[in-house]
Nucleic acid binder design. Structure first.
Lengths: 138, 138
DNA sequence: TCCTACGATGGACGGAATCCAAGTCAAGAA
DNA sequence: TTCTTGACTTGGATTCCGTCCATCGTAGGA
């Protein structure tokens, strides 16, 4: 994620302390924070950071393809910094925990031409659901 | 969908005019209405029906497995009555149009055991995205 | 060091969904 | 048929997410 800031600067990003903190908070694997969680963690390091800035920065990171937006369901969107390693998500229907997973094959290839109805299909997103080990026994 | 009401009555549902109208509105193939759209169409037949009732009824239908909730993304959830015919969704990234599609194979089978992390995986939901014919040319 | 355009702020706003207390009514009992 | 009751409906308030906007601050080039 260190290179992220470099990459962004290369794209003409003005490097502010706020953006730096948001990028740092999103560092790591299996990170799936909501915008509010990102804001809370960012505020630990930079108390004055506003929610609008967090939303703006997250939106920009998504547009730049550095972060993926995950609508797990109804509630708030989650932000996944693991954008450069294609993967899918496995969600616990009990507690909402999220794991990155790597299914076999390419889901896009499983949609035959006659099922595309003239769409220029560019992306396939798979969400697996089930109970996690904790919720199974609990 | 006619049997739906029968099935629900069998499960102890009190059959009110509101529930009947909501179920009727959701009848058909390739129906993907938002709660507000359901409310609007229901209100044509039953002007006093309240939004809370529509939300309640939709929630119950989802719990009973008669209707599927589709979080296309950011915006309002959509409700898909085609719950007894397994299918996936193809969404236009331009205009948001939705189609039911049937990919080859079973996405659940593509998740190897070592990628399940002890989860009891029960469901795989695939969302294809791309531009529809109208949005491609336009 | 200065300038200025880009970014940050926070409070107002909007849409989607839920909550709640009060009123209504479907359907079983008598 | 009428009565009774608890499940259902209502609509307004409320919460939760997210966006907008006018104003202020500042990163980084000149």
């Amino acid at each position: 994620m260190n290179d992220l800031l470099e990459r962004l600067r290369g794209r003409g990003w003005r490097l502010t302390s706020q953006r730096r903190v948001v990028a740092e908070v999103l560092d790591g694997e299996h990170v799936h924070l909501t915008a509010d969680e990102v804001h809370a963690r960012a505020a630990e390091r930079l108390p004055e950071i506003s929610r609008a800035t967090v939303y703006n920065t997250l939106g920009e990171l998504v547009t730049l393809g550095e972060v993926i937006e995950v609508s797990t369901d109804g509630r708030a969107k989650r932000y996944d910094p693991n954008a450069h390693h294609p993967h899918q998500h496995l969600i616990c229907t009990g507690c909402g925990a999220i794991r990155d997973v790597h299914p076999r094959g390419n889901p896009l290839a499983d949609l035959p031409a006659e099922q595309r109805f003239g769409f220029a299909v560019s992306q396939a997103e798979v969400t697996y659901r089930g109970l996690c080990p904790d919720c199974c026994t609990g």
